[in-house]
Design a binder for these strands. Structure first.
Lengths: 171, 171
DNA sequence: GTCTATAGGCCGATAGAC
DNA sequence: GTCTATCGGCCTATAGAC
């Protein structure tokens, strides 16, 4: 991976996340990245393919952020790590999240099953904690984490919410 | 309001909700609506203004859907009506919701305070039901409703979730 | 007065050629 | 890395049909 190619990816991530895919032109990316516009097409062929490579990176990044939760065996710790996950994310990763949530609404983008592994992990956790309906509890927890992440990204999150959740789950 | 103007608004709502604002050209709207492209500019001046008029309609529609919850006085009924709200929404309104959730991520669009009145209603409700932290409970309930709506719109909602929630809230 | 059809200007976007 | 071609998007203008 050359330096310029990385610059293009980084800049495109930021602009796509901020303005949206359609609203971001390749020339805007080139200018912001300090490269010639042609280089984008040399490396990625076309604009759509640039987005595709970005989404692979995004998925890897997000999987990496979930890893500590997957590896945790103590069920209470799983819940604590899950609830506080959005808080522990470094600001440099925000664009990845933003892009992810933005692109959910694009008609082409349809990998609904992406969250299934984490849902299974949650279900196991609630089973271990003797919750009555672990499957539904997993869905609820997943919704809560997503909502917190969205609130943080939209800059309307209130810190008091976390201790409230910890009490709810008796942590 | 003339028929053609309504057709333009209706078609634009659908296309903006489906493809996004930037990705939808005025010529595409005109073709889909069966009108000449010039008519769009005659009625709305420019594309941005068309979106603006749509957003006013959208806000009115959504306010109207929340009205029964606002008018309900029995706190348990408030919760039941809230939890089942996304289910009770007719499919013809889906595009309004979709547009709303899509546009949250646009940089210009920043009316965070829009959900404050419903949050207040929820807080009163939880206070009446003697919940310990009504403010946080209101946030949680709001997150749940939004998540359900999103799941429905993204076609990944499971009906079993509603009875689970009703049990949670002892309804 | 509402709308269509058409023509065209201007600009920016994608892409290929060199 | 630049240059250029081509296309499509936004918008204006006008002449005329309903």
């Amino acid at each position: 991976m050359t330096i310029k190619k990385e610059q293009i990816l980084e800049t495109a991530l930021h602009l796509f996340a901020k303005e949206g895919y359609s609203a971001t032109s390749t020339s805007k990316i080139a200018k912001a990245a300090g490269v010639s516009e042609g280089l984008i097409f040399r490396h990625f062929g076309n604009k759509k393919n640039l987005l595709k490579e970005l989404m692979i990176q995004t998925q890897e990044t997000i999987n990496h952020l979930f890893l500590p939760i997957f590896e945790e065996t103590d069920p209470k710790e799983v819940l604590i790590k899950t609830i506080t996950l959005p808080l522990r994310i470094d600001k440099e990763y925000y664009d990845y999240w933003r892009l992810q949530y933005k692109l959910r609404w694009e008609p082409e983008y349809t990998n609904n099953n992406k969250f299934v592994p984490i849902l299974n992990k949650f279900e196991e956790t609630f089973t271990a904690l003797n919750y009555k309906e672990p499957k539904q509890e997993a869905i609820l927890l997943n919704q809560i984490v997503n909502s917190i992440a969205i609130d943080i990204l939209l800059d309307r999150f209130n810190e008091d919410y976390i201790p409230f959740l910890k009490k709810k789950y008796k942590l």
